[in-house]
Amino acid sequence: MLEIRDLHVKFHNRDREAVAGISLTIGDGEIVGLVGESGSGKSVTAMSIAGLLPRKQCDLSGDILLDGEDLLHAPRSALRQIHGRKIGVVFQEPMSAMDPLMKVGEQVGEVLRIHTRMSKEERRARVLEVLQAVELSDPEAVYDKYPHELSGGMLQRAMIAAAIVIHPTLLLLDEPTTALDVTIQAQILELLKKLNAEWGISMLFISHNLNVVRKLCRRVAVMQRGELVEAGSTDQVFFRPQHPYTKRLIEAIPTRHGKETL
């Protein structure tokens, strides 16, 4: 469904390529994890899929195909048709990723406003439905709230709702749980699993946290310094890591014998 072939990204003001030739595929209904430390190029990869890189300030080469459609070299106008409709994005900090002056419900419905001819009432009905689906209690109340009136966890649910309101084929999740409490983190992961199973949305889940990735993804890819150093099924990568970098990453996970985390 999504196919990345030999993607290179180089920013004009940097010497090293941010992404140095990676290839990756995501099948229909699959959740793929992309792991690496900060600066490894995982976010840049996601941004190039989402078409959010400043094209004037970087060189791009390779292919990104979504259902056969070229994303990397498509004109802006064509990309706008894909944004929101076929690809939804959820960012790390829900508080800053939301427009502080727009009601949460309107932000969730913005994709509908841009891509459909729905009336205001139809949009509202649809938004309430989706807010329900992301397990926000009392969607009616949430609809009319401003971002600063909601907690981080609630906001991230709303962000997910905004990204899936039009039922995209691919959901990009850029460290969606990093800024949240551990318990909220677990709830969000459960929610994503549910959406994947019930709605059949494919996901690319980006995180520096291996534990989180292990809970959610069946397949995982590991990035270091712009390169894909290892990819395979989650079990394979976790229990039989081939690359020394992956080994170090896994050794760094706190175990039950040490200080307890998840």
């Binding site: 929101g84 960012f91 427009d99 905004a162």
Partner: peptide, 26 residues
């Protein structure tokens, strides 16, 4: 420069939409 602008673009807003719906109000 703010993060909400990136979100707005990711929803398919064009330059005009980003400006009128989000940035100007802010």
């Amino acid at each position: 420069q703010k993060a909400y602008v990136r979100t707005a673009i990711s929803r398919g807003n064009d330059r005009r939409g980003v400006l009128t719906r989000h940035v100007l109000k802010n």
